[in-house]
Simulated assay, not measured.
Amino acid sequence: MKRRTITFSLIALAAFSLVVATTRMAKPPTVAPCSDAWFVYIEKEYDASPSDEEGHGPDFGDPSWFSSFEYQAGIPNTSGRLPDQRCLAIQQQLERRTIVVSRLFGAITLWR
């Protein structure tokens, strides 16, 4: 029984270490919302891209790009707004929330 407990503890510690080693806290963009630099930063920093493995996907500012990012980041959907309004709403949400990004699990909102 003692050997099983030690084995379980080592496996749990290894799993926890893997999650910690592959997780980081995302920082909100500091560039102007809706600029190309803003979209590029968001996709990189939050590891959230609506594109497939070959790079095919919606263009920056496309309604499906916004919806995909909002879903992946766990923030409210802003559909029905104009693109500039959506950028500002997303920026505000990113500044208000604490989001960690895991290579294993993607973007996870911890605090709102």
Rank of each mutant, 00 (worst) to 15 (best):
Q85K: 12
S79M: 13
L88M: 13
F60C: 07
S79D: 10
G55I: 00
H56C: 04
P83A: 10
S67R: 12
G61V: 04
S68P: 13
E54N: 02
Y71E: 15
Q91D: 14
P76F: 03
R86V: 02
P83Y: 04
F69I: 12
P63F: 02
G80V: 12
C87S: 02
A73E: 01
I75S: 09
G55Y: 01
Q92I: 03
A89M: 06
D62A: 11
P76I: 08
S68M: 09
H56F: 08
E54H: 11
P63C: 10
R81A: 09
E95R: 15
E53R: 14
F66E: 00
Q85M: 03
S67D: 10
P63A: 10
G80S: 11
I90D: 14
S79H: 15
E70D: 08
A89P: 02
F60T: 04
E95T: 15
F66A: 08
H56Y: 11
F60P: 11
S64N: 06
S67W: 07
F69W: 04
S64M: 07
G61L: 11
G57L: 07
E70K: 01
F60D: 13
R81M: 08
R96M: 06
R81C: 12
T78C: 01
L82T: 15
Q93W: 10
P76C: 02
C87A: 00
T78W: 00
G57Q: 06
I90W: 12
D62P: 09
W65D: 04
F60N: 12
E95S: 14
R81P: 10
H56T: 12
Q92E: 14
H56G: 02
D62Q: 06
Q72T: 07
S67Q: 12
S79V: 08
R86I: 05
W65L: 02
S67N: 11
